[in-house]
Simulated scan of single mutants.
Amino acid sequence: MQYRHLGKTGLKVSVLGYGAWVTFGNQLDVKDAKILLSRCRDSGINFFDNAEVYANGRAEEIMGQAIRELGWKRSDVVISTKIFWGGPGPNDKGLSRKHIIEGVKASLKRLEMEYVDLLYCHRPDPATPMEETVRAMNYVIDHGWAFYWGTSEWTAQQITEAWEVARRLGLIGPCVEQPEYNLLARDKVEVEYLPLYSSYGIGVTTWSPLASGVLTGKYTKFSIPPDSRFSLENYKNLANRSLVDDILLKVDKLRPIAAKLDVSLAQLAIAWCASNPNVSSVIMGATKESQLIENVKALELLPRLTPDVMDKIEAAVMSKPKKPDLYR
Rank of each mutant, 00 (worst) to 15 (best):
D125I: 05
D125T: 08
P126E: 10
P126F: 11
A127C: 01
P129A: 13
M130I: 15
E131W: 05
E131I: 15
V134M: 15
R135S: 08
Y139M: 13
Y139V: 08
V140P: 00
V140F: 00
V140I: 12
H143D: 09
H143N: 15
H143V: 06
G144A: 04
G144F: 05
W145T: 11
Y148C: 10
W149K: 01
W149V: 04
G150H: 13
G150T: 13
T151I: 14
S152K: 03
W154C: 04
W154S: 03
Q158T: 13
I159F: 14
E161W: 02
E161C: 04
W163F: 11
V165T: 11
A166K: 02
A166W: 02
R167S: 14
R168L: 13
G170R: 09
L171E: 10
G173F: 10
P174E: 05
V176H: 00
V176Q: 00
E177M: 02
E177Q: 06
Q178M: 02
Q178T: 02
P179T: 12
P179R: 07
Y181C: 09
N182P: 07
N182Q: 11
L184D: 02
A185V: 15
A185L: 10
K188G: 03
K188C: 05
E192C: 08
Y193F: 15
P195C: 00
L196M: 00
Y197G: 04
S198W: 06
S199M: 11
G201L: 08
G201W: 12
V204Q: 04
W207I: 07
P209L: 09
A211W: 09
A211G: 05
S212P: 00
S212K: 13
G213R: 01
G213T: 02
V214N: 12
L215R: 07
L215H: 12
L215F: 13
T216D: 03
K218T: 07
K218Q: 14
Y219S: 11
T220M: 06
T220W: 13
K221H: 15
F222C: 02
S223M: 07
I224D: 05
I224P: 05
P225N: 01
D227P: 03
R229N: 00
S231I: 09
L232S: 01
L232F: 02
E233I: 09
Y235N: 10
K236L: 05
N237S: 13
L238G: 02
A239R: 01
A239G: 14
L243Q: 12
V244G: 05
